[in-house]
Design a binder for these strands. Structure first.
Lengths: 198, 198
DNA sequence: ATGACTGAGTTGCTTTTTTAACCGAGTAAC
DNA sequence: GTTACTCGGTTAAAAAAGCAACTCAGTCAT
Protein backbone atom coordinates (compact mmCIF):
# COMPACT_ATOMS: atom_id res chain seq x y z
CA UNK A 1 0.00 0.00 0.00
CA UNK A 2 1.35 3.38 -0.88
CA UNK A 3 0.36 6.13 1.46
CA UNK A 4 3.53 8.04 0.63
CA UNK A 5 2.33 11.44 -0.41
CA UNK A 6 5.65 13.25 -0.46
CA UNK A 7 6.71 15.77 2.11
CA UNK A 8 5.78 18.81 0.09
CA UNK A 9 2.24 17.71 -0.70
CA UNK A 10 1.61 16.60 2.84
CA UNK A 11 2.70 19.91 4.30
CA UNK A 12 0.71 21.88 1.79
CA UNK A 13 -2.41 19.98 2.67
CA UNK A 14 -1.78 20.55 6.32
CA UNK A 15 -1.22 24.26 5.80
CA UNK A 16 -4.41 24.50 3.82
CA UNK A 17 -6.35 22.76 6.54
CA UNK A 18 -4.77 24.91 9.21
CA UNK A 19 -5.79 28.07 7.40
CA UNK A 20 -9.29 26.85 6.68
CA UNK A 21 -9.86 25.61 10.19
CA UNK A 22 -8.52 28.78 11.75
CA UNK A 23 -10.74 30.85 9.48
CA UNK A 24 -13.94 28.91 10.14
CA UNK A 25 -13.26 28.84 13.83
CA UNK A 26 -12.79 32.59 13.96
CA UNK A 27 -15.79 33.23 11.74
CA UNK A 28 -17.98 31.12 13.99
CA UNK A 29 -16.73 32.97 17.03
CA UNK A 30 -17.09 36.51 15.79
CA UNK A 31 -18.95 36.50 12.46
CA UNK A 32 -17.67 36.75 8.93
CA UNK A 33 -16.90 40.43 8.70
CA UNK A 34 -15.68 40.95 12.21
CA UNK A 35 -12.65 38.88 11.30
CA UNK A 36 -9.93 40.27 9.05
CA UNK A 37 -7.72 38.15 6.87
CA UNK A 38 -4.86 39.39 8.97
CA UNK A 39 -6.44 37.79 12.00
CA UNK A 40 -6.78 34.53 10.15
CA UNK A 41 -3.23 34.59 8.89
CA UNK A 42 -2.01 35.29 12.40
CA UNK A 43 -4.10 32.48 13.87
CA UNK A 44 -2.90 30.04 11.24
CA UNK A 45 0.68 31.27 11.68
CA UNK A 46 1.26 32.05 8.05
CA UNK A 47 1.72 35.32 6.18
CA UNK A 48 -0.99 37.14 4.30
CA UNK A 49 0.41 36.43 0.82
CA UNK A 50 0.61 32.78 1.73
CA UNK A 51 -3.02 32.83 2.75
CA UNK A 52 -4.01 34.24 -0.63
CA UNK A 53 -1.84 31.68 -2.37
CA UNK A 54 -4.07 29.01 -0.87
CA UNK A 55 -7.44 30.75 -1.11
CA UNK A 56 -8.28 33.25 -3.84
CA UNK A 57 -10.68 35.33 -1.73
CA UNK A 58 -11.87 35.69 1.81
CA UNK A 59 -15.15 34.01 0.93
CA UNK A 60 -13.36 30.94 -0.27
CA UNK A 61 -11.96 30.52 3.20
CA UNK A 62 -15.44 29.55 4.27
CA UNK A 63 -16.51 27.69 1.21
CA UNK A 64 -13.53 25.48 0.65
CA UNK A 65 -15.37 22.71 2.45
CA UNK A 66 -17.93 22.81 -0.32
CA UNK A 67 -15.28 23.13 -2.95
CA UNK A 68 -13.89 19.82 -1.82
CA UNK A 69 -17.18 18.29 -3.01
CA UNK A 70 -16.93 20.20 -6.26
CA UNK A 71 -17.92 18.09 -9.22
CA UNK A 72 -19.13 15.29 -7.03
CA UNK A 73 -22.48 14.97 -8.82
CA UNK A 74 -20.74 14.76 -12.18
CA UNK A 75 -18.41 12.11 -10.83
CA UNK A 76 -21.27 10.05 -9.47
CA UNK A 77 -22.90 10.05 -12.87
CA UNK A 78 -19.71 9.17 -14.69
CA UNK A 79 -18.76 6.38 -12.30
CA UNK A 80 -22.17 4.72 -12.09
CA UNK A 81 -22.48 1.04 -12.98
CA UNK A 82 -23.73 0.36 -16.46
CA UNK A 83 -27.46 -0.09 -16.63
CA UNK A 84 -28.14 2.41 -13.88
CA UNK A 85 -29.87 5.64 -14.79
CA UNK A 86 -28.06 8.85 -13.86
CA UNK A 87 -30.89 10.08 -11.67
CA UNK A 88 -30.99 6.77 -9.86
CA UNK A 89 -27.28 6.93 -9.18
CA UNK A 90 -27.61 10.46 -7.84
CA UNK A 91 -30.58 9.45 -5.73
CA UNK A 92 -28.68 6.58 -4.16
CA UNK A 93 -25.67 8.75 -3.57
CA UNK A 94 -27.74 11.36 -1.77
CA UNK A 95 -29.47 8.67 0.22
CA UNK A 96 -26.10 7.27 1.28
CA UNK A 97 -25.07 10.75 2.39
CA UNK A 98 -28.21 10.93 4.49
CA UNK A 99 -27.44 7.59 6.09
CA UNK A 100 -24.04 8.73 7.24
CA UNK A 101 -25.35 12.15 8.23
CA UNK A 102 -23.05 13.88 5.80
CA UNK A 103 -23.03 17.63 6.41
CA UNK A 104 -23.63 18.32 2.72
CA UNK A 105 -27.10 16.78 3.02
CA UNK A 106 -27.98 19.25 5.75
CA UNK A 107 -28.69 16.33 8.03
CA UNK A 108 -25.99 16.88 10.64
CA UNK A 109 -26.66 18.05 14.15
CA UNK A 110 -23.07 18.62 15.14
CA UNK A 111 -23.20 22.08 16.68
CA UNK A 112 -20.23 23.20 14.64
CA UNK A 113 -21.83 22.10 11.40
CA UNK A 114 -25.12 23.77 12.23
CA UNK A 115 -23.41 27.00 13.15
CA UNK A 116 -21.39 26.77 9.98
CA UNK A 117 -24.47 26.46 7.85
CA UNK A 118 -26.10 29.39 9.60
CA UNK A 119 -22.99 31.40 8.93
CA UNK A 120 -23.12 30.63 5.23
CA UNK A 121 -26.84 31.17 4.79
CA UNK A 122 -27.00 34.41 6.74
CA UNK A 123 -23.97 36.09 5.20
CA UNK A 124 -25.02 37.49 1.82
CA UNK A 125 -21.61 37.54 0.19
CA UNK A 126 -21.13 33.92 1.19
CA UNK A 127 -24.47 32.73 -0.06
CA UNK A 128 -23.76 34.56 -3.29
CA UNK A 129 -20.41 32.98 -3.77
CA UNK A 130 -21.85 29.59 -2.94
CA UNK A 131 -24.37 29.78 -5.75
CA UNK A 132 -21.53 30.53 -8.13
CA UNK A 133 -19.87 27.32 -7.06
CA UNK A 134 -23.11 25.50 -7.61
CA UNK A 135 -23.28 26.86 -11.12
CA UNK A 136 -19.92 25.34 -11.89
CA UNK A 137 -21.09 22.12 -10.37
CA UNK A 138 -24.20 22.24 -12.50
CA UNK A 139 -22.21 22.71 -15.64
CA UNK A 140 -20.00 19.75 -14.84
CA UNK A 141 -23.02 17.62 -14.14
CA UNK A 142 -24.64 18.70 -17.40
CA UNK A 143 -21.52 17.68 -19.28
CA UNK A 144 -21.57 14.31 -17.57
CA UNK A 145 -25.19 13.83 -18.49
CA UNK A 146 -24.82 14.49 -22.19
CA UNK A 147 -24.99 17.13 -24.83
CA UNK A 148 -28.26 18.91 -25.41
CA UNK A 149 -30.59 21.20 -23.60
CA UNK A 150 -32.16 18.24 -21.85
CA UNK A 151 -28.93 17.46 -20.07
CA UNK A 152 -28.71 21.05 -18.84
CA UNK A 153 -32.30 21.04 -17.69
CA UNK A 154 -31.89 17.82 -15.81
CA UNK A 155 -28.67 18.98 -14.20
CA UNK A 156 -30.30 22.18 -13.01
CA UNK A 157 -33.25 20.31 -11.61
CA UNK A 158 -31.17 17.74 -9.79
CA UNK A 159 -29.04 20.35 -8.09
CA UNK A 160 -32.08 22.44 -7.27
CA UNK A 161 -33.64 19.41 -5.64
CA UNK A 162 -30.53 18.69 -3.62
CA UNK A 163 -30.39 22.30 -2.54
CA UNK A 164 -33.95 22.29 -1.33
CA UNK A 165 -33.57 18.97 0.45
CA UNK A 166 -30.44 20.11 2.23
CA UNK A 167 -32.00 23.39 3.33
CA UNK A 168 -35.10 21.64 4.53
CA UNK A 169 -33.10 19.23 6.62
CA UNK A 170 -30.94 21.97 8.02
CA UNK A 171 -33.98 24.04 8.91
CA UNK A 172 -35.50 21.24 10.93
CA UNK A 173 -32.26 20.72 12.78
CA UNK A 174 -31.84 24.44 13.33
CA UNK A 175 -35.24 24.26 15.01
CA UNK A 176 -33.77 22.00 17.61
CA UNK A 177 -34.47 18.47 16.41
CA UNK A 178 -31.81 15.78 16.21
CA UNK A 179 -30.50 14.40 12.96
CA UNK A 180 -31.55 10.93 13.96
CA UNK A 181 -35.09 12.14 14.55
CA UNK A 182 -35.27 13.93 11.22
CA UNK A 183 -33.71 11.11 9.22
CA UNK A 184 -36.92 9.26 8.17
CA UNK A 185 -38.55 12.42 6.89
CA UNK A 186 -35.40 13.35 5.06
CA UNK A 187 -35.34 10.00 3.34
CA UNK A 188 -39.03 10.29 2.42
CA UNK A 189 -38.53 13.80 1.07
CA UNK A 190 -35.57 12.68 -0.97
CA UNK A 191 -37.41 9.69 -2.39
CA UNK A 192 -40.36 11.83 -3.37
CA UNK A 193 -38.21 14.55 -4.89
CA UNK A 194 -35.91 12.28 -6.88
CA UNK A 195 -38.77 10.07 -8.06
CA UNK A 196 -40.62 12.91 -9.65
CA UNK A 197 -37.55 13.85 -11.63
CA UNK A 198 -37.72 12.84 -15.33
CA UNK B 1 6.15 44.04 26.16
CA UNK B 2 7.33 42.82 22.82
CA UNK B 3 7.18 39.09 22.39
CA UNK B 4 6.87 39.50 18.65
CA UNK B 5 9.52 37.24 17.25
CA UNK B 6 8.47 37.33 13.61
CA UNK B 7 6.93 34.37 11.87
CA UNK B 8 10.13 33.21 10.25
CA UNK B 9 12.21 33.13 13.41
CA UNK B 10 9.49 31.41 15.36
CA UNK B 11 9.12 28.63 12.82
CA UNK B 12 12.85 28.12 12.57
CA UNK B 13 13.12 27.65 16.27
CA UNK B 14 10.26 25.20 16.19
CA UNK B 15 11.82 23.25 13.36
CA UNK B 16 15.10 23.08 15.21
CA UNK B 17 13.40 21.78 18.31
CA UNK B 18 11.39 19.28 16.33
CA UNK B 19 14.51 17.88 14.73
CA UNK B 20 16.46 17.78 17.97
CA UNK B 21 13.63 16.21 19.91
CA UNK B 22 12.94 13.61 17.25
CA UNK B 23 16.62 12.75 17.11
CA UNK B 24 17.12 12.38 20.84
CA UNK B 25 13.93 10.42 21.19
CA UNK B 26 14.97 7.97 18.50
CA UNK B 27 18.51 7.70 19.84
CA UNK B 28 17.21 6.86 23.28
CA UNK B 29 14.90 4.24 21.84
CA UNK B 30 17.34 2.45 19.59
CA UNK B 31 20.85 3.75 20.27
CA UNK B 32 22.94 6.25 18.40
CA UNK B 33 24.07 4.23 15.45
CA UNK B 34 20.95 2.21 14.98
CA UNK B 35 19.24 5.39 13.83
CA UNK B 36 20.00 6.90 10.44
CA UNK B 37 19.72 10.58 9.68
CA UNK B 38 17.03 9.59 7.21
CA UNK B 39 14.99 8.17 10.05
CA UNK B 40 15.37 11.38 11.97
CA UNK B 41 14.44 13.55 9.03
CA UNK B 42 11.38 11.40 8.43
CA UNK B 43 10.34 11.55 12.07
CA UNK B 44 10.78 15.32 12.16
CA UNK B 45 9.01 15.63 8.81
CA UNK B 46 11.73 17.59 7.11
CA UNK B 47 14.13 16.71 4.30
CA UNK B 48 17.70 15.59 4.78
CA UNK B 49 19.33 18.76 3.46
CA UNK B 50 17.17 20.75 5.83
CA UNK B 51 18.35 18.62 8.69
CA UNK B 52 21.96 19.33 7.83
CA UNK B 53 21.28 23.02 7.53
CA UNK B 54 20.21 23.03 11.15
CA UNK B 55 22.84 20.64 12.48
CA UNK B 56 26.29 20.27 10.92
CA UNK B 57 26.74 16.60 11.82
CA UNK B 58 24.84 13.69 13.24
CA UNK B 59 26.65 14.04 16.53
CA UNK B 60 25.46 17.60 16.89
CA UNK B 61 21.92 16.31 16.87
CA UNK B 62 22.62 14.92 20.29
CA UNK B 63 24.87 17.62 21.59
CA UNK B 64 22.87 20.68 20.69
CA UNK B 65 21.51 20.70 24.18
CA UNK B 66 25.03 21.27 25.40
CA UNK B 67 25.73 23.72 22.64
CA UNK B 68 22.94 25.88 23.97
CA UNK B 69 25.08 26.30 27.08
CA UNK B 70 28.13 27.05 24.97
CA UNK B 71 30.21 29.87 26.39
CA UNK B 72 28.18 29.98 29.56
CA UNK B 73 31.22 29.91 31.81
CA UNK B 74 32.80 32.78 29.91
CA UNK B 75 29.60 34.75 30.18
CA UNK B 76 29.34 34.16 33.90
CA UNK B 77 32.82 35.56 34.36
CA UNK B 78 32.24 38.57 32.17
CA UNK B 79 28.90 39.41 33.76
CA UNK B 80 29.97 39.03 37.37
CA UNK B 81 29.53 41.95 39.74
CA UNK B 82 32.63 44.00 40.32
CA UNK B 83 34.59 42.89 43.33
CA UNK B 84 33.72 39.25 42.85
CA UNK B 85 36.49 36.87 41.89
CA UNK B 86 35.93 34.84 38.73
CA UNK B 87 36.20 31.53 40.52
CA UNK B 88 33.67 32.67 43.08
CA UNK B 89 31.22 33.67 40.39
CA UNK B 90 31.62 30.30 38.70
CA UNK B 91 31.24 28.52 42.01
CA UNK B 92 28.00 30.33 42.77
CA UNK B 93 26.70 29.69 39.31
CA UNK B 94 27.35 25.99 39.57
CA UNK B 95 25.78 25.95 42.99
CA UNK B 96 22.67 27.63 41.60
CA UNK B 97 22.53 24.98 38.91
CA UNK B 98 22.66 22.32 41.59
CA UNK B 99 19.83 23.98 43.46
CA UNK B 100 17.53 23.88 40.49
CA UNK B 101 18.69 20.38 39.50
CA UNK B 102 19.93 21.59 36.17
CA UNK B 103 20.80 18.67 33.91
CA UNK B 104 24.20 20.16 33.09
CA UNK B 105 25.26 19.64 36.71
CA UNK B 106 24.52 15.93 36.39
CA UNK B 107 22.08 16.28 39.27
CA UNK B 108 18.85 15.42 37.51
CA UNK B 109 16.95 12.21 38.03
CA UNK B 110 14.46 12.69 35.23
CA UNK B 111 14.61 9.34 33.47
CA UNK B 112 14.99 11.00 30.12
CA UNK B 113 17.93 13.08 31.29
CA UNK B 114 19.64 10.10 32.87
CA UNK B 115 19.19 8.02 29.75
CA UNK B 116 20.45 10.91 27.70
CA UNK B 117 23.63 11.19 29.70
CA UNK B 118 24.22 7.48 29.45
CA UNK B 119 23.80 7.75 25.72
CA UNK B 120 26.42 10.47 25.51
CA UNK B 121 28.94 8.85 27.82
CA UNK B 122 28.70 5.39 26.32
CA UNK B 123 28.87 6.39 22.67
CA UNK B 124 32.51 7.07 21.80
CA UNK B 125 31.93 9.41 18.90
CA UNK B 126 29.61 11.48 21.05
CA UNK B 127 31.93 11.67 24.00
CA UNK B 128 34.67 12.67 21.61
CA UNK B 129 32.68 15.40 20.04
CA UNK B 130 31.59 16.65 23.43
CA UNK B 131 35.17 17.17 24.54
CA UNK B 132 35.75 19.25 21.44
CA UNK B 133 32.90 21.46 22.48
CA UNK B 134 34.39 21.70 25.90
CA UNK B 135 37.68 22.81 24.40
CA UNK B 136 35.92 25.69 22.69
CA UNK B 137 34.22 26.48 25.93
CA UNK B 138 37.56 26.42 27.67
CA UNK B 139 39.08 28.81 25.20
CA UNK B 140 36.23 31.26 25.62
CA UNK B 141 36.57 31.05 29.37
CA UNK B 142 40.30 31.61 29.14
CA UNK B 143 39.74 34.74 27.08
CA UNK B 144 37.24 36.00 29.62
CA UNK B 145 39.72 35.39 32.40
CA UNK B 146 42.61 37.31 30.89
CA UNK B 147 45.67 36.99 28.75
CA UNK B 148 48.49 34.78 29.88
CA UNK B 149 49.14 31.18 30.59
CA UNK B 150 47.59 31.54 34.01
CA UNK B 151 44.22 32.32 32.50
CA UNK B 152 44.41 29.22 30.34
CA UNK B 153 45.44 27.05 33.26
CA UNK B 154 42.63 28.31 35.42
CA UNK B 155 40.10 27.84 32.66
CA UNK B 156 41.18 24.28 32.09
CA UNK B 157 41.04 23.52 35.78
CA UNK B 158 37.61 25.03 36.26
CA UNK B 159 36.10 23.09 33.42
CA UNK B 160 37.84 19.91 34.53
CA UNK B 161 36.34 20.39 37.95
CA UNK B 162 32.88 20.93 36.56
CA UNK B 163 33.25 17.86 34.40
CA UNK B 164 34.22 15.68 37.32
CA UNK B 165 31.47 17.06 39.52
CA UNK B 166 28.84 16.46 36.89
CA UNK B 167 29.99 12.93 36.20
CA UNK B 168 30.13 12.14 39.89
CA UNK B 169 26.59 13.35 40.38
CA UNK B 170 25.35 11.51 37.37
CA UNK B 171 27.04 8.29 38.50
CA UNK B 172 25.30 8.40 41.86
CA UNK B 173 21.97 8.94 40.20
CA UNK B 174 22.65 6.24 37.66
CA UNK B 175 23.14 3.96 40.67
CA UNK B 176 19.55 4.55 41.59
CA UNK B 177 19.57 7.40 44.08
CA UNK B 178 17.32 10.45 43.78
CA UNK B 179 18.60 13.88 42.95
CA UNK B 180 17.16 15.25 46.15
CA UNK B 181 19.05 12.63 48.14
CA UNK B 182 22.32 13.34 46.41
CA UNK B 183 22.03 17.11 46.57
CA UNK B 184 23.88 17.70 49.89
CA UNK B 185 26.86 15.66 48.83
CA UNK B 186 26.90 17.39 45.49
CA UNK B 187 27.01 20.76 47.19
CA UNK B 188 29.77 19.60 49.54
CA UNK B 189 31.80 18.21 46.66
CA UNK B 190 31.38 21.41 44.70
CA UNK B 191 32.41 23.57 47.64
CA UNK B 192 35.48 21.50 48.25
CA UNK B 193 36.47 21.40 44.60
CA UNK B 194 35.99 25.09 43.90
CA UNK B 195 37.63 26.16 47.15
CA UNK B 196 40.87 24.42 46.37
CA UNK B 197 41.06 26.21 43.06
CA UNK B 198 43.65 29.02 43.01
C1' DA C 1 -14.69 67.10 0.55
C1' DT C 2 -10.38 66.16 2.41
C1' DG C 3 -7.61 63.44 5.05
C1' DA C 4 -6.63 59.57 7.95
C1' DC C 5 -7.87 54.61 8.61
C1' DT C 6 -8.91 50.03 7.79
C1' DG C 7 -9.27 45.96 5.14
C1' DA C 8 -8.89 42.98 0.82
C1' DG C 9 -5.68 41.61 -2.46
C1' DT C 10 -1.10 42.19 -4.96
C1' DT C 11 3.83 42.64 -6.06
C1' DG C 12 8.95 42.11 -5.88
C1' DC C 13 12.53 40.39 -3.39
C1' DT C 14 14.76 37.34 -0.11
C1' DT C 15 15.03 33.28 2.70
C1' DT C 16 13.82 28.58 3.49
C1' DT C 17 12.60 23.98 2.04
C1' DT C 18 11.94 20.18 -1.01
C1' DT C 19 13.55 17.12 -4.51
C1' DA C 20 16.55 14.22 -6.74
C1' DA C 21 20.81 13.33 -7.73
C1' DC C 22 25.30 12.80 -6.38
C1' DC C 23 30.13 11.72 -3.63
C1' DG C 24 32.96 8.79 -0.76
C1' DA C 25 33.63 5.50 2.80
C1' DG C 26 32.38 1.14 4.76
C1' DT C 27 30.67 -3.56 4.32
C1' DA C 28 28.35 -7.72 3.00
C1' DA C 29 27.69 -11.13 -0.98
C1' DC C 30 29.43 -14.06 -4.06
C1' DG D 1 37.98 -8.65 -6.38
C1' DT D 2 33.85 -6.75 -8.00
C1' DT D 3 29.18 -5.57 -7.22
C1' DA D 4 25.71 -3.66 -4.74
C1' DC D 5 24.09 -1.85 -0.45
C1' DT D 6 23.71 1.51 3.18
C1' DC D 7 24.84 5.70 5.38
C1' DG D 8 26.76 10.43 6.30
C1' DG D 9 26.91 14.51 3.96
C1' DT D 10 26.57 17.80 -0.28
C1' DT D 11 24.79 20.21 -4.42
C1' DA D 12 21.74 22.63 -7.80
C1' DA D 13 17.38 23.84 -9.24
C1' DA D 14 12.71 24.76 -8.36
C1' DA D 15 8.76 25.38 -5.23
C1' DA D 16 7.03 27.70 -1.43
C1' DA D 17 6.94 31.00 2.31
C1' DG D 18 8.05 35.46 4.57
C1' DC D 19 8.36 40.41 4.52
C1' DA D 20 7.47 45.01 3.42
C1' DA D 21 5.39 48.04 0.73
C1' DC D 22 1.89 48.94 -2.40
C1' DT D 23 -3.07 49.62 -4.72
C1' DC D 24 -7.82 50.25 -4.43
C1' DA D 25 -12.33 50.59 -1.90
C1' DG D 26 -14.99 52.00 1.55
C1' DT D 27 -15.77 54.67 5.99
C1' DC D 28 -15.64 58.02 9.21
C1' DA D 29 -14.12 62.04 11.16
C1' DT D 30 -13.73 67.14 10.95
Amino acid sequence: MSESTGLRARKKERTRDAIGDAAVSLFLQRGFDRVSVNDIAAAAEISKPTLFRYFPTKEDLVLYRFVDHQGEAARVVRDRQSGIKPVTALHRHFRAGLDRYDPVTGLSDHPEVVAFHRLVFTTPSLAGRLTRYQLDDEEALADALGEGIQARLLAAQVLAVQRVLARTNWQKIADGRTAHDVHPEAVADADQAFNQLP
